[in-house]
Design a protein around this nucleic acid. Structure first.
Lengths: 135, 135
DNA sequence: CTGGATCCCGTAGGATACTG
DNA sequence: CAGTATCCTACGGGATCCAG
């Protein structure tokens, strides 16, 4: 890591977000806004995993998307990629310190999601129902 | 609102997320994973806003995408849409109770984003740099 | 086992013009 | 003012085959 990669621990609880409607926030939220990043983060929460383990853990992900997602997260400093020069190849992925803080920051949203799945299903059904009767 | 839209307050801090790698979590995360929802939520945090106010507040959003985003959030029960039958038309958007809880659940992620923008920029620069020198 | 290279498709989303 | 209606493009992402 070079100089600016991390200028010491940041107490981000003190940062004022009242005047940050979108710009930077969205930009970085895209980190986890794609289809698979959250699943990868969630799977790596328990510790390092190798490629095939991730592939098996994350239902429905294609090899290509796992590769792409892992490379993006590595590029952003969220996880590390360690290659063991053995046969057959063994590559291990592990969250960085920053990756773990990101993982923790996603917890409230994930909890919210799980807690409100039914309410959202209901709201959607009601909305679609009213839209139909109005027709 | 009918019965199941909200089955009472849920203490989602008590929900176990250890074994929820992706499925439902991602599904609901898509609520805010699109390009503009977070900006709308953030803008409505301060109180009700009308269409044009939102349009002006959110830099770069098109009329179409504002309309689409608002309708989706309304459908999911995140905000309400109130039409005042006057000339010229006046339509007001406001977060629901559930919308406010969602808004709060996004705070940690937004704070994280703002706090780590520089670190991520650095990590990307370093990654791209090494990829180039390796070439 | 861990990917890279291609091909292909659906859809998010921008630009523009029109309407009650 | 608050949208709808089209058109069009870029890109996310799946399937498949190949390679070290």
């Amino acid at each position: 890591m070079t100089e600016q990669a991390s200028s010491g621990p940041v107490d981000y609880r003190t940062i004022d977000i009242s005047n940050v409607p979108d710009c930077r926030a969205r930009e970085v939220l895209d980190l986890v806004a794609d289809k698979w990043s959250l699943s990868v983060l969630s799977t790596l929460e328990a510790g390092p995993r190798r490629f095939t383990e991730l592939k098996r853990s994350i239902t429905g992900i294609s090899q290509r998307m796992l590769t792409v997602t892992l490379r993006d997260l590595q590029r952003d400093g969220i996880l590390t990629r360690t290659v063991y020069a053995v046969m057959p190849p063994n590559v291990s992925y592990e969250l960085t310190a920053m990756g773990r803080t990101l993982q923790e920051a996603t917890h409230p949203l994930i909890r919210w999601s799980i807690a409100h799945v039914d309410a959202i299903d209901g709201a959607r059904a009601e909305f679609d129902n009213q839209a139909e009767t109005a027709r």
